[in-house]
């Protein structure tokens, strides 16, 4: 095993250990709750962002009907790996939030408008 492979294996081990550590249901103390509920329909795809040729990845899943529904602070860790040797932990979060008034909105998106003449 050469040094590069060893270093990559070490990095993966660090990330996996981190994932295992956070996988136990716990509170981070910042209002975010790391959970590992049963999931279904895990899906990932590459998405284009039209500006500047940027690309992104979206990962989606649903909490199984047998489990309690997620709360706004729920974060569910998933592990992303690539052939190029990247290893990342991403935190799934609820896609739809609900306001105190019972209005549903997207948790990670916002809308904005610009003043007249800003064109």
């Amino acid at each position: 095993m050469d040094l590069a492979t060893l270093a990559q294996a070490r990095r993966m081990l660090v990330v996996v250990l981190g994932l295992l550590t956070t996988s136990a249901a716990c509170s981070t103390g910042t209002g975010v709750s790391i959970e590992t509920p049963p999931l279904q329909d895990l899906e990932a795809r590459q998405v284009p962002f039209r500006f500047r040729g940027n690309w992104g990845v979206i990962v989606r899943a649903s909490v199984d009907l047998a489990a309690p529904a997620p709360t706004p602070s729920t974060r569910v860790p998933v592990l992303v790996t690539t052939d190029a040797g990247d290893v990342e932990e991403l935190l799934l979060r609820p896609r739809v939030c609900e306001s105190d008034e019972g209005q549903a909105y997207l948790c990670v998106q916002f809308l904005f408008s610009m003043e007249e003449g800003r064109r």
Binding site: A61, L65, L91, R93, R95, V108
Partner: peptide, 9 residues
């Protein structure tokens, strides 16, 4: 209510 998602660069 059960849908989860995350974006990454």
């Amino acid at each position: 209510a059960r849908q989860l998602a995350v974006y990454a660069r």
